[in-house]
Write a protein that binds this DNA or RNA. Structure first.
Lengths: 229, 229, 229, 229
DNA sequence: GATGAATGAGCTTTCATTCAT
DNA sequence: GATGAATGAAAGCTCATTCAT
């Protein structure tokens, strides 16, 4: 049943959320240290002092941005990892899931990637834990895949994990600047690359080329197809 | 600024170079906007005002850092691209070459990756051109590989290029924090991943796993072996 | 900067006005470049940083000073020029009017005279226009006087204008340092000098010697007597 | 007989003089506090530090500029005052003499007028003395003229002196910016203005209008004619 | 005679933050 | 709930000056 929290509580939350949005946008654009609280206020048509009604400090705002940026990455990855798919498909699904927020919450994710290191020790650690958790899930998928014989035996699970994540994170930077490159296509191609590499198939048929056929240009959707045949 | 005529100008250059080194280190650690010129001076045991004998502005120092960080990336990639190797091997070699500076010039490269966006329009554009050139070389290798039938036909050359570079660049961030991960191993595994993907080989044998055997921990060297058989 | 909507904005304006006063005083005393914003703040018992709540820059403060210094010079001169007096009397009145602010707004006027050249191109031009307008009014009076046969036919209107203004402006520098020289007397004597020169009258009676008799020591008042008989 | 000072002594003097020239120019253009020693060095193609071989401080340079700017004003005025001319003619001659340096040494004079107040107490006083001496000479001429019945009895010698000097000094500011206004004409018209005023002559003929007939456009020359008839 | 290197002091300006209202 | 006013701290930068060479 939908909770009926007092309408009064809705408003301030609302405004605070707007401020975090603005902070994310501004921090993403100019960097945490390059952005001033005035910039944030400007974006909201607010006076700069008013921000301090909602946040005790600039740092606190960054922390909120980073916390929200983490979002449900872990949950979604966990769900995928726990699923019945084969390892390669899971990885592809994680790539897709990882890339999805770039469109809707790009500012947040960019802040996470580039500005979280400016957080105070404490919150940095807290957020770092989440990041490591996320990596752990991927790594688990890879290790399981190797054990099951589904993935190449010579993979280094840790390095592969980092490579995968790095590849995706990089996309956060250039997505939007690359023309004609819908998110779905990126996810698709990235997945194909990771799963099967660049080398032309030796003897065997082209496997994942037809993966997610027709999904080019629209991907973020839930019903993912198995990768490859 | 010191005039640089004749060999006599070697000494002052020395100092300027030291300052750029310090700036790179400080900017890499705290971010351009998070670092103060005082920080740079401190690192050199210099007075802050003295920096301005060598550089007209903090921005100019960043520009120098970024210019130097670009280094010979393009030249090395060009050399590899122009070589006789097969496309997959070229890509592996480029990965190796791309990662090499992380150890010796990590600060520079990190500045380039994270701080170059704070450069004034003009120098940003100049440096952007070099970056695009570099991407072009990679992309050329991939396109040629596809045309030659050496690389999978369904690759998107642009996206593959960006994925590759992104993957490598990400390593710049965590290299050194990951224990027991010598550069050579990273290069090796990254190359293997890109070339052959994660999927267990279908029928055929794992080819590039033994690439650069023994080169683990030492990679940046010139005499690269062919990847795979 | 404080928004200035409605009557509510009166108070803050107050403070800004005080700052401009202080700036005028300090700039007049030490010169624009010789004065620091700290000096201005000191004079107000304010912290230096607080000035920037009211003004975006030191230059902007100078601009305000210069704008205010221009004051109603033009209007007053225009009123006199438009009056029914004879040309010589008009000039005398303008001299008087020109000198009047030296006592009440000497700092402003001195800033205008000596520091306006340090204004940025734009405001310098705007203010220069007002100055030229003022000169134009004087010159107009002289030209009309010549045409009416009231003034010597061999006058150079332009040079006479500049001489007159220069003479008055110079008084801004030494007024207050010359003992026993009330403003009224200065105005009176300057007017007499300009109108009739230094030469003893040839045959004719001393004309303007008794001008404004008794007005010595108090002049700035409106009801000016005709000069001469 | 021409003295034969060692040629060696000529050089350094030479350079020092050049530096003072440059300082005068730069101080005149930007104001003493607005000009940097670097500006002076730039104008000479010298390194900034080299200035200190010739001058112990920036202030000392200003002092030199001001000292030289005073030049032979006093001597020339004294010579005129001591001459046999009538008072009105002497004043006219002094005006001419006063204006003469504007062309050849305008930078010096402008420095004197505007920047001497930034001199340290001591040199300010020394230079102030010279200025007062100069004023005294003029005032003496006026007083003598009055006593001799050549000048109007109602003149205030002090104010008349200051008016005269102020008028001339003002010309230093605009001379060069006023088109088509040769120095001779300025001197001529200023003298005429002061001597006879602006008022059209009453009955008597215009006397000094034809003063220095034909001298318009060339005046600064030595052989001065008597003013007026 | 001149300069490269360096620096102490001070500059204008920015900024996160506070607080009475 | 929001803001006007103010400020401490620090930033980047300039500059007159020094000094060994």
């Amino acid at each position: 049943m939908p909770s009926a929290r007092g309408a009064r509580a809705v408003r301030p939350r609302r405004r605070a959320e707007e401020i975090i949005d603005a902070a994310a946008a501004v921090f993403a654009e100019r960097g945490y240290h390059g952005a001033s609280t005035q910039d944030v206020a400007d974006r909201l048509g607010m006076r700069q002092a008013s921000l301090y009604y909602y946040f005790p400090s600039k740092e606190a705002a960054l922390e909120q941005v980073c916390l929200r940026s983490v979002g449900d990455f872990v949950e979604r990855a966990q769900a995928i990892a726990a699923g019945p798919d084969r390892a390669a498909d899971k990885l592809a699904a994680i790539v897709e899931s990882h890339l999805a927020p770039v469109e809707t919450r790009g500012d947040y994710v960019r802040c996470f990637l580039r500005e979280r290191r400016f957080l105070p020790r404490d919150s940095a650690r807290r957020i770092g834990r989440v990041a490591r958790q996320y990596e752990g899930i991927l790594q688990g998928v890879i290790e399981a895949g190797i054990a099951a014989g589904e993935l190449r035996r010579d993979l280094d699970p840790r390095l592969t994990t980092l490579a995968l994540i790095g590849m995706c994170n990089a996309a956060m930077e250039w997505y939007g600047r690359e023309p004609n490159t819908p998110l779905g296509r990126i996810a698709n191609k990235f997945a194909a690359l990771v799963v099967d590499g660049v080398r032309a198939t030796r003897g065997a048929s082209p496997p994942s080329g037809n993966r997610a056929k027709g999904s080019d240009g629209r991907a973020g959707s839930r019903p993912r197809r198995r990768v490859g045949g």
